[in-house]
Structure formats: C-alpha cells, structure tokens
C-alpha cells in the first residue's frame, strides 16, 4: 500500500495504490489530515491503483469529505475509480454525492 500526496496550485492530489483495509485506514485518514492541517481542503483522490477498499477506508474518505466541505471551503473528488470499487461505492449510496472523474486531469480541472 502506498499513499503519495502531490501539491498542485488548485488542489492536492492524493494517489493511492494497493490494498486499503482496516490495518491501513488510519494512514489514509492521516494523509487527509495532513492536507487539511496545511489549509488545503480541495483534494483529488487518484484511485487508479487501488485493488481493495474496505468499509474502514470508506469511513476515512467520508470523514474527510465531510470536513473538507464544511463552510464551503473545499471538496474531495475521486479520479479513476476501478469498476469493482465503484460498484461498492454505489451500494453504499456514496455516488449520489461524491463526484467521480475518469482521470486525475479532469478531477483537478474541475476545481
């Protein structure tokens, strides 16, 4: 599992790779926390390399989504979500509010 944060002008891009189960969900929450502590609330999550995303990882994502959108200060947008993971997001009703883009360029451009 790797988490890499890239700082761009418009937003931060957090690139995720590998398995995100309960053992690494705290590291994911920490990555979001670091961006927010730096005052960056516009975040793109590049999910192209994610193989597995458990409910604990989804909780970390939703907590960050809630916090970034508070007082209209930002948003968390997803890029390149693998089909099987998008299916799980749909089941949990997440796709009705979290914005998904086909790739990182589109997602960054949306801010």
């Amino acid at each position: 599992m790797t988490i890499e944060t890239k700082e761009l002008k418009r937003c931060n891009v957090i690139k995720l790779e590998g398995r995100f189960d309960s053992s690494v969900a705290p590291a994911l929450a920490e990555a979001f926390r670091e961006s927010m502590d730096d005052g960056v609330y516009r975040i793109v999550v590049d999910m192209s390399g994610v193989q597995f995303f458990s409910s604990a990882a989804i909780r970390a994502l939703l907590m960050a989504y809630k916090e970034c959108r508070r007082w209209n200060r930002g948003d968390v947008r997803l890029a390149a979500v693998p089909e099987h993971i998008a299916g799980v997001f749909d089941l949990a009703g997440i796709l009705s509010f979290v914005e998904i883009y086909p790739d990182t360029t589109f997602a960054v451009g949306s801010f």
């Binding site: 458990s54 409910s55 604990a56 989804i58 909780r59 939703l62 907590m63 799980v88 089941l91 949990a92």
Partner: peptide, 11 residues
C-alpha cells in the same frame, strides 16, 4: 457513518 461493514457483508 458506522455500520457499513455489516451492511457490506449482507449486501
């Protein structure tokens, strides 16, 4: 946000 784990096990 809780309860998703069991929800996924069922669904």
């Amino acid at each position: 946000i809780g309860g998703l784990g069991l929800f996924f096990m069922r669904e």
